[in-house]
Design a protein around this nucleic acid. Sequence first.
DNA 1: CTGAAAGCGCTAACAC
DNA 2: GTGTTAGCGCTTTCAG
Lengths: 352, 352
Amino acid sequence: MAGSTIYDVAAAASVSIKSVSRVLNGEPNVSEALKAKVGKAVEELGYRRSLSARGLAGSSSSVIAALVDAGMTIEHWRSGSGNDYLSRLELGVLMELRQVDYHLMVEMVDYASPTLSRDLAALLSSIRPEGVLLTPPNSDLTVVLDVLDASGVAYARLGAEHELDRGTLVSMDERQAARDMTEHLIALGHRRIGFIGGPAVYSASRLRLEGFMAAMQTHGLEVPDDCLAEGDFTFAAGVAGVKRLLGAERAPTAIFGACDDMALGAIQGAVAVGLRVPDDLSVAGFDDSPSAMFSNPTLTTIRQPVAEMAAAAVQRLTPPLRARLSQEDQTAAVVVPYRLVARASTAAPPPG
Amino acid sequence: MAGSTIYDVAAAASVSIKSVSRVLNGEPNVSEALKAKVGKAVEELGYRRSLSARGLAGSSSSVIAALVDAGMTIEHWRSGSGNDYLSRLELGVLMELRQVDYHLMVEMVDYASPTLSRDLAALLSSIRPEGVLLTPPNSDLTVVLDVLDASGVAYARLGAEHELDRGTLVSMDERQAARDMTEHLIALGHRRIGFIGGPAVYSASRLRLEGFMAAMQTHGLEVPDDCLAEGDFTFAAGVAGVKRLLGAERAPTAIFGACDDMALGAIQGAVAVGLRVPDDLSVAGFDDSPSAMFSNPTLTTIRQPVAEMAAAAVQRLTPPLRARLSQEDQTAAVVVPYRLVARASTAAPPPG
DNA sequence: CTGAAAGCGCTAACAC
DNA sequence: GTGTTAGCGCTTTCAG
């Protein structure tokens, strides 16, 4: 029942196994009659080629490995604050892969491991994936790229910023998005705006900060040091960040958090000291995590198109999907559009 | 670099490939000297056995397949409301698997597909996983279990309720948890409590409803029909649900949503008609999704131990991990403890 | 305690 | 157009 092989199919169709293989692989020079015979036999037996056997014999393993960051994932889970980055990523991947009989393997990688290079090499030589999907901060680690290059796998880098000639690039314009959000706050009338940044390992942290600074500068607005805080992308960091910013010499009327969790923390921190959001203080985030839409007030944020980026990456990583793309699309770096989602946490500054 | 094989290791250690295999598999009757030699060679070459080859040759594929529901996953993504069930599940799985060189494959399964049985059989015969992790509602579908049994794979069922003699069972006491939450509301002083239930395919929906009803009955409290609403686990359903319940002949002073998304929807729906939560209306949820802790007010809910359940399942699905468990633990159904998390969305009913 | 040989179910050269 | 023959890198008999 569970175990028909290519020989069974060949026998049922009275052809050679090579013919079966040819049909299954969509190779050229196959008669319609053959296709039909084989198709029928496959159908009747409910036959599927063994992933293991294909991986072993051929060059294609039909497996895409997604490397996700262990630290942040574990942290999110322990703190209970969760995060749907993973879900969104996988959804994007799975929606594409299901079309082509490829499969997803998820691996946690600890970028802080002293043996990262070895760990990764071991992983690759064991799995031999056909493509690797790199998420931040792994996308930007030279060690990681080196191992990948040495092993010869194709890989896509989500949100990479350095060494842009390596691998397939898929990202969104973080800098411009941060700039847009800052402009949004400025347009509302804010002049003193604080920023809570993320950890330096994440390229996005720097880009978002840059976007913020650029917009402020464009409008001739100053950003004193005490209007800048740094966090580690957690809710608690947002609480701490807002505390710092509100203690500034001239406290900001708006705060832009480099991620939703921190922005949400900022809201809570502000409410805790008696401020009303957005009446007394506007708060904006970045990511559009689910919590952003359920928080009170709902959070103005940037929708990071994680699933779309993952889908684009996978399309370029799997030969059958890649073939559907134009020559241009196959090689060019992909920049997926984002969206500013204005919700209730931002408004005009208080008249004071 | 990327391609050392068992032959390379054997050569480097001047032994036969079988000896290498024996050491790697921890088989008995191996001299310390041999172990050392092989270990050294493996170390130096950075050798890892090929997953494909092992899967093909042996009976063990070292792959655990997690079957997640396509419909709900896609829905969460489209609505942007997200959900961290998947992340939590995978975290639990990955933390266990990393100890034993097993790998996780994630597959989306559409339980509503007319060809579900075929789809699944095809998937299994292609992947040949060593264990399958079933999430609701797949855990409780006879068709699914039948295919699994026919293929002979070991499988674990998360939150299963029917046919409890099939597969490895891992769950939490949904009924009791719902009961606890209801008791919590009653203890606060509520007498008229409304309930927004989930879709019938999910066993949990029924169990939670039963728990609610049981607690109400114990206290001699009535539950008129118009205090019962049904939703599909989405935020929108919560909004609709609260609308219905507030329109009841004698409107409830507390609402218990069968999941956090619906409870959050209920809060928003209540706020929209001018009610204050929890002053005018208490709202409780179920799941403890990240949004629950960021919502305003923060949501009183039941912490569903998804990662822990997944970990327990994986421990029983992978032979090397299973071996560490006591005989008792290996066979008994696992019931993972939950926790009622009291937050700010519930309080005593208004004096009226 | 260790080794030689025979596949696992495919794909890939190479014939025909 | 189609079939034959080798392997891919392991685990498994079965010997010694």
